[in-house]
Design a protein around this nucleic acid. Structure first.
Lengths: 259, 259
DNA sequence: CTGTGGAAAATTTGATCATATTGTAGGACG
DNA sequence: CGTCCTACAATATGATCAAATTTTCCACAG
C-alpha cells in the first residue's frame, strides 16, 4: 500500500491532470478543459488546491461519488496524486458549499437527500433560478443563444445514447451558462451551490425515469430567449426546475427503504 | 515582527482562546462561548482549524476587518497563534462562503459592496428570510420566544449605550436563532452566508444613521410569534430586511467616493 | 465444542507543523 | 522607461502525533 502510494505521489497532480486535458478548439471543449487543465484559459498556472477542488467538485456534482459514500483525505491524495494540504483545502471548500458533509467524528461523506431537503431545494431553486433566467434573458446575445442551443442538442444526443455522464454535464453546463449570463454573481453562486446538493442524486434518478416523456422545457426557454421574452423564459425555467426536482423526489420515495 | 510572532506562536491557539472563553451560566453566554471555546458544549475537543474558522468568520461578520482590507495567512497565524495549515483551511472556507474575496494574484481581502450586490442581496434576503420566519413561527416554543425577547432587549441596551459591537452580535443572534428554529438547514445556511456579505458594511452604517427613528420590527415579529401568526411574522421580517438593506444602500451611496 | 462478548493491539485516517519551493510585488539600476 | 533583482508571502510536501476504527484474540457461557 505504501509502495503504491509512493509510486503515484512521484508525479505531481499537475502532470497527471495535464494528460487528461484534451484541448480542442470548440467552445464546449474549452469549457470542460477549464475544470481539468493545469492552466487557465489565459495561460496562467492554476494552483494544485484549485485543481483538486475542481476535480472533487465535479466528482460530487456528477455523482461519481455516490450519496452516503465516505471521502477520505488520503484516498484523494492517492487518486489525484496531490499532497495533503491542497486536498484538505479542497475538501473544506466543498464542505462549505454543502457538497460534502462533515460528520462529528471527523468523517466526511456525500450527504443523502431526504424529503425535507428536497422541499427546501425546490423552494430555493424555484425562487432564484427563474430570477436569474429573467436577468439573463435581457443580456444574452445571439451567439450565446446559439451556444446554449448547441449544448442542449449535445444533451439530447447523450440522452439518446444513454450516456448519463455527458447528459449530466451538458445539463449543468446549460443552466450554469444562463446563470453566468445573468451578471449576478451572488445569486449565481447561490444557485450553483444548490446543484451540489441534488447533483449526486441526479445520476440515481436517470436510470429510473424516462425523461423523454416529459415536455422539453429547455426548448421553450431557448425560444423565449430568441424572442426576448424574459417572463416566458423565467416561467420555463421554473417549470424545468420543478420537473427535475419532482423526478428526484419520486425516485427517492420509491427507493426510500432500498439503499 | 518575526520576534513578536515567535512569542505568540509558542502558545497554541487552544490555550490562547481558552483564556478568552469566559463560561457563564446564561444561554447567551453559552451561545457566544461556542464561537471561541476550545471545547464543544458536550466537552469534545474542537480542532484548531474549526476554531480559527469561527474566529475569522466572526471578525468578518462583525466588521472587525474592514471592507477592502487585505487578509494574509501569516497575519492570522501571528494574531491567532495557530499554524499555517489550519489558517489556510479557515480562509478557504470563508472564501467559499463569500465572506472573503480571492483575488487572482493570490491576494485575499474583504469584498466591498457595490450597488448591484446590494440589489442581489435584497432579493435573496427578502425571499428567503421571510420563509424561514414563517417556518420558525410554527415551531418556536414559549421559552424560545422569551429568549429572543431577551436578546432583543440586550440589543436595545447596546444601541442606547452606543456599543456597536454588541449591537451587531445581538442583532445577528436574533436572526440566526430564528433561522435555526425554522428546521430548514439548507435555507438557514444560505441565509447565514448572505450575512457574511453585508455584515462588514453594517458597522460602517451604524455610525451614520439613527436606527431609533425607524419602526422596531423585531417587536412586531415577537408579537406575531406570541400570537402564532406566521404570516405577520414573515411580513415583519421582510420589512426588517428591507429596512436594514435600505440603510446600507443609503450609507454606501453617500460614501461612494469617500473611502 | 461452539458461539458471543469485550478488551486490547494494529491499522487506518485526520490534524498539525516545520520546511522547502515557487511566484509576486516593489524597488534598484541601467 | 523598461528590465532585473531582492525580499516577502503563498504554495506544497512529508514527517509526526493523535484519534478512531477495525481486527484479533481470549475468556466464558451455553
Amino acid at each position: 500500500m505504501a509502495e503504491i502510494a509512493a509510486g503515484v505521489v512521484g508525479s505531481t497532480v499537475r502532470e497527471v491532470l495535464k494528460v487528461e486535458a484534451v484541448r480542442e478548439k470548440t467552445r464546449m471543449a474549452a469549457f470542460e478543459a477549464r475544470v481539468i487543465s493545469a492552466e487557465e484559459a489565459d495561460g496562467t498556472k492554476v494552483p494544485a488546491h484549485e485543481l483538486v477542488y475542481r476535480r472533487l467538485r465535479a466528482q460530487v456534482l456528477f455523482g461519481e461519488i455516490a450519496p452516503g459514500q465516505a471521502v477520505t483525505i488520503q484516498g484523494l491524495t492517492a487518486s489525484l496524486g496531490a499532497g495533503m494540504t491542497p486536498v484538505r483545502e479542497a475538501i473544506r471548500r466543498v464542505i462549505a458549499e454543502g457538497g460534502l458533509n462533515f460528520q462529528g467524528n471527523r468523517r466526511v461523506s456525500v450527504p443523502v437527500l431526504n424529503r425535507a431537503c428536497i422541499e427546501e431545494l425546490v423552494f430555493l431553486r424555484a425562487t432564484i433560478e427563474p430570477e436569474l433566467t429573467r436577468r439573463a434573458a435581457t443580456r444574452l446575445e445571439a451567439g450565446d443563444i446559439d451556444w446554449l442551443e448547441a449544448v442542449d442538442a449535445e444533451m439530447d444526443v447523450a440522452i439518446e445514447a444513454g450516456d448519463i455522464a455527458t447528459y449530466l454535464k451538458r445539463n449543468h453546463a446549460f443552466h450554469s451558462a444562463i446563470y453566468e449570463a445573468a451578471d449576478a454573481p451572488i445569486m449565481a453562486s447561490t444557485a450553483d451551490r444548490l446543484w451540489l446538493r441534488f447533483g449526486p442524486s441526479l445520476r440515481v434518478v436517470c436510470g429510473q425515469y424516462d425523461a423523454a416523456r416529459e415536455p422539453d422545457l429547455h426548448k421553450d426557454m431557448l425560444a423565449a430567449f430568441r424572442s426576448g421574452d424574459a417572463a416566458a423564459a423565467a416561467a420555463a425555467m421554473e417549470r424545468d426546475v420543478r420537473q427535475g426536482m419532482g423526478q428526484i423526489q419520486s425516485a427517492l420515495i420509491e427507493n426510500l427503504f432500498s439503499p
